[in-house]
């Protein structure tokens, strides 16, 4: 990686763990459906925070509110001390990057090209530079290619730079999405179910990768259904149910909370969630 690890760790230690992301009372309403209901969540720098909840709880919708894809109906989001800008690409520039629940790579581009697209906000080659092949174009191309290669190695994708992303195995595609997000040089990385569809071994590798990312000084907010993964990984976990925060706290606390178990297993006393299945379409933006 470009950032020397020692330095990054020092940075984390010297900084008092300031609030990076501060979402307050975020509410997202689609017509009559309240997908996210008055959710408040803070992420400090260098922290790994988990977001869990049954299907249709509103986790992905909450992510979309954080990354500018949706404009929350109510509530404010502050990132790095500033109000969240209105467009996804501006959010990226501020230092927040994400992956998608249903992989949204550029399928007909090679792995390295995918990563290089992620560098768009951090590079400045203009049309003029490109047309006349001015030094800025050449230098940036060289630098971005090298950096993309490093990022691919960092996530464990060595030697597949020239593979079309659609030809990569599923687990590698998820890792490539992380590399692409890292290419935007984020301070906070949002991962939407990074281990969905992975076998236990790949899940373990993903876990290691997320720790490695944290060690670079990044904060991570991760949605996952795999409880072992979440409680291994996260400093704090928040559980959403039907759009609202049910419990929030350290892993052990949330893990043993009877309400969480009930929300997952279900009990006759609770009415069913408004919509259960959100695997399809719009919800995953």
């Amino acid at each position: 990686m470009g950032i020397p690890v020692e330095e990054a760790i020092k940075q984390v230690q010297t900084m008092d763990r300031n609030v990076l992301l501060d979402a307050r009372n975020v509410t997202m309403q689609f017509g009559g459906l309240i997908a996210v209901n008055d959710v408040s969540l803070q992420v400090h720098s260098g922290e790994i925070v988990g977001l869990i909840g049954p299907n249709g709880a509103g986790k992905t919708t909450f992510f979309n509110c954080l990354t500018g894809l949706y404009k929350p109906t109510f509530g404010t989001v502050t990132f790095d001390g500033k109000p969240l800008p209105p467009k996804p690409r501006m959010v990226v520039r501020e230092g927040m990057a994400r992956t998608f629940q249903n992989i949204r790579l550029f399928h007909n581009m090679t792995a390295i090209e995918n990563v290089m697209v992620g560098m768009y906000t951090r590079t400045h080659t203009s049309a003029i530079d490109a047309v006349f092949r001015l030094p800025r174009h050449r230098h940036e191309e060289i630098a971005s290619t090298r950096r993309a290669q490093e990022l691919l190695e960092f996530v464990g994708l060595t030697g597949v730079g020239d593979t079309l992303s659609r030809n990569l195995p599923y687990g590698d595609q998820r890792r490539l999405e992380i590399a692409r997000a890292l290419a935007t040089e984020p301070k906070l990385l949002l991962l939407d179910e990074p281990t969905a569809g992975m076998n236990p071994q790949e899940t373990r590798q993903a876990e290691e990768l997320i720790f490695k990312i944290r060690d670079l000084g990044l904060a991570v907010l991760v949605i996952e259904h795999d409880m072992r993964f979440i409680f291994n990984l996260c400093d704090r976990v928040s559980c959403l149910v039907r759009g609202a925060v049910l419990v929030e706290g350290p892993g052990e606390v949330v893990q043993n909370d009877p309400r969480v178990i009930e929300a997952y297993i279900g009990s006759p006393a609770t009415p069913p969630a408004p919509t259960t299945d959100s695997a399809g379409g719009a919800a995953d933006a």
Partner: peptide, 17 residues
């Protein structure tokens, strides 16, 4: 590269900056 990304998946391109 940005153009190809737009063609492939405009929303993802926007979300990648």
């Amino acid at each position: 590269r940005g153009w190809v990304a737009i063609r492939e998946d405009e929303l993802a391109a926007e979300a990648m900056g």
